[in-house]
Amino acid sequence: MRDTTAPLLDVAGLKTVFHTRSGDVHAVNSISFALEAGELVGVVGESGSGKSVTMMSLMDLLPRSAEIVGGEVLFEGRDVRGMTRAELLQLRGRDVGFVFQDPMTSLNPVFTVGRQITERLRKHMGMTKAEAKVRAAELLGLVGISDPERRLSDYPHQFSGGMRQRVMIAIALACDPKLLIADEPTTALDVTIQAQIIELVRDLRRKLDMGIIWITHDLGVVAGIADRVIVMYAGQIVEQGPVRDLFARPQHPYTRALLETLPKVTGERSERLHTIEGQPPSLGDEPTSCPFAPRCAHAFARCMTENPFRVDVGGGHDVACWWDPETGEMRDV
């Protein structure tokens, strides 16, 4: 039964491995985090950092070559990995909504938008055809599509990119989900359209009480929308904390380098960009040392032999690193 004291989502020690022809790839390495109801967590990292695979692992939406090899996922205290297929379908269809990067590949091109929304309402909410149609129009209106009743009979290709993403959000919200997982939802959109979608999500958050996981590579988007930020590197959480604290005092050398490397549209303009030399590791083996150490300017001998655990730095902010940016010395842990 539902545990009311448990967080909405509680993940502990999650590990996912891809079995490929050229060997295993350890994409997710012992990820632990929790999400409260109504909270928006931004997950940032570069391609291959495991941010999408982690979130797909939560609801077991992985391709066949991937396998979850360890860890625990609790949704409102219920063990997701132990669920039957029927329970899992119910969870994914009703309690969790998904929005992906490219709305054109997630919408079915041969069905009208109306049908794609009403289908879910009828299946998971037990609505009649007429009820579902009313609710579907309401949802399109909620995401800012004008003349929603008429647009229900349009096909996905009749919408622009930004409008299609609004449709995806409407579908994701159809069954009043408790959790919304958005994977790079604005990456394929132009900045002015991205600004519209972000404004929409801010507005929806005020109206609906749901937890949101927002995966992005754009630190600017995260700064404007998230309550809390998780920074991923090489399949691990290297730092996480409340958004203001994380941007005000980034702890991990990777987070700090990422923030320094970004050119800015306002304020001071740097003559030369900071770079992070080298490349992320290939993850053929599970990291036994700090995966960032080869690119890190502050690495100690210990970093080459031991993978740092997450250290609490106060205020709900923690970092998987032994270097203390305030003293420049090794942390006393």
Binding site: A195, V221, A223, F247, V265
Partner: peptide
């Protein structure tokens, strides 16, 4: 266009005025 670019600073993001363009 310039106002739509997200800034990687929560303090700036919380206060700055954006011009949100309507439509496509």
């Amino acid at each position: 266009l310039l106002s739509a670019v997200p800034v990687a600073d929560p303090e700036v993001e919380a206060t700055r005025k954006q011009i949100i363009l309507e439509g496509d």
